[in-house]
Design a protein around this nucleic acid. Structure first.
Lengths: 341, 341
DNA sequence: TCATTTCCTCAAAGCGCTTTGGCTACCCAC
DNA sequence: GTGGGTAGCCAAAGCGCTTTGAGGAAATGA
């Protein structure tokens, strides 16, 4: 069933039917109702591809899903997607998800953009000096960045959390508790958030004339395996750190396991603060020793980003171009006074 | 840059350029190379919507993502999507993801199907007597079901794991270890896999003249919170069970926490077997007491499903229509001989 | 030399929709 | 009674691609 058939059935022109459907004013109330009724009965749905071709609008948001055989599934991605979906549902939008090799993000994004399949683009997993930014800016298609790209002019629309402040504050707290030897279990070094978090730690330590020992910094994938491995290594150091900062509760999961296995008491022998993306599965309060965290909901970010992107497509944008969300510092039992030497 | 412009640039007709691009034989080698070179230089990409309209093919797989505000993110969904993506990448396919209220899965699926945006459909979270099946069959579009629908004629293409056998075997093992009182932490009652798993348990118990106590069966969302809650309740029963079956390692995560809090020893006071979807985050071997599991990789299922769907679209299908994967029963430390009364 | 085949190319139709630019009644005011 | 407005409808163009049906040129055969 297509427009032509429907309009013939009704004895109307395609124009009128189309207008009736799309809420244009110049169609008689009676006629409109007749059309709507026929749509109900026949189950007619406009062909999206044709609509897209005619209007240039597709009602869809494009995003790239990094994936490669063997790569671990990223819990954070799913959580974010849930938020995105929640908002998209309200506006009858959908996503076009292009899987891409992590080494070909630029290419995948470009393909998506010129495919004519999407109205707006969304990018995340931002890197320092991210090459995708230039491409996006040249594209004349709304886009939104989750995160930022250190080293690039911040002249693009983004939503980010204040990673630097989060980790600055967390470090500060630990310093006040008397800790002097720190370790940082961070995400991959090339990612923007990892860089900023490290900067935050460095800044707080520098104020006290301290610095992170190279052996106490790790940049790994955000999996609990890596957390375990790194933590095991760190615990064997001569002067082992008493304060641990983790870029994710997922990393913390492994780190805590290592700490338990070493028969150390979390919050007493060793303190730990993790960043909490409010993952459904992994609540810091559910750890055996509840975790002190810096918190910002990834899912809420997804909702907000969908909201802004859709507004951008519909040209009803009234949102600020750039948002920097503060994180909350939530103190639980995993942080305590530094043990006596 | 579109076909028209490109062909004008080259002094060729649109037809010839189109044919050159799509590998038709009736175009001169030289001409083809000239076209390809121009494409390289100009960065021309065919408009997908137009292509879709003209050919009826979109190079995309449609799927519905259940989502509602407040609903927990489903870890299993992300893991599966990773597998799907991994395979789709190899064939230059993408997904169209429609978020949908869990109560409107039929409607969402229908919208997706008639939208003209997708070439094939995929459905999961199958229910008993699933209403989507009739719709799919009437659609003349390739589709594939992950799971099955008990109560419906099994005359549709599916990929499922043998849930009944998995839980039958697991129960059997526990029986052999001397356990007589069982509990089952299951997924939502209306879902097919949950029904079958319960059937498996029932069957094995029935062979020994045993049955599940109503108080020892739970049907909940597959979150660790629910696992904790249910397990806490079960542990307070008068004659508490000594053998626990869990429909997911996510549920097990909570259940184990409850067991620990009750100061019971897993594998001694109480035995537990969980189904392991091979979630990246949650490895049964990483539990403090490694978990005995029935195992089947959700991600592998994703890969396989993408493979079959894409073959279906390209009409190169040589795969069986219906696949039932056996699960592995992997014995670790969470199962032990039943404690003496 | 002319007819036939082969190779390459083209013009135009069509996919299903939106939108532009009329066109026809009909009503109102002067 | 005539001119201008407006409400309601329509025909046709166009979005960018693929594909059908033809046709011209070169090569082959009789």
């Amino acid at each position: 069933m297509n427009l032509k058939q429907l309009s013939q059935m009704l004895g109307l022109s395609q124009t009128t039917v189309s207008r009736a459907l799309n809420g244009y004013p110049e169609v008689n109330r009676e006629t409109r109702e007749r059309v709507l009724k026929a749509v109900q009965e026949t189950g007619y749905r406009p062909n999206k591809a044709a609509q897209r071709l005619a209007t240039g609008k597709a009602g869809s948001i494009g995003l790239v899903m990094p994936t490669a055989p063997g790569n671990p599934t990223d819990l954070h991605f799913g959580e974010f997607l849930t938020g995105l979906g929640e908002e998209a549902l309200r506006h009858d939008f959908h996503f076009v998800v292009t899987p891409a090799d992590p080494n070909d993000e630029v290419g995948a994004l470009k393909r998506l953009a010129v495919s004519g399949n999407v109205d707006a683009l969304f990018v995340n997993y931002m890197r320092g000096h991210d090459p995708r930014l230039d491409m996006l800016k040249s594209l004349s298609m709304p886009f939104l960045v989750h995160g930022r790209s250190i080293g690039s002019e911040p002249d693009y629309p983004f939503l980010d959390i204040d990673n630097e402040a989060a980790f600055y504050d967390a470090t500060k707290l630990l310093l006040q508790l008397g800790h002097r030897r720190f370790a940082l279990l961070n995400g991959p070094m090339y990612l923007d958030f990892a860089i900023r978090r490290k900067n935050g730690v460095d800044a707080a330590l520098a104020e006290r004339g301290l610095a992170l020992d190279e052996a106490c910094i790790s940049h790994t994938a955000m999996t609990d395996e890596q957390g375990l491995l790194v933590m095991e290594r760190i615990l064997q150091l001569d002067k082992r750190p008493t304060a641990i900062l983790c870029s994710s509760t997922v990393l913390a999961l492994g780190a805590v396991r290592a700490i338990n296995q070493a028969k150390l008491k979390l919050g007493e022998d060793i303190s730990l603060i993790a960043h909490d993306d409010v993952l459904t599965l992994l609540k810091p309060e559910n750890f055996t020793v509840p975790l002190t965290t810096t918190r910002s909901s990834l899912r809420a970010a997804g909702v907000r980003i969908a909201e802004r992107l859709i507004a951008g497509i519909k040209h009803t944008e009234t949102f600020p171009e750039q948002e920097l969300w503060k994180t909350e510092l939530i103190v639980r039992a995993s942080t305590g006074v530094a043990p006596a030497e």
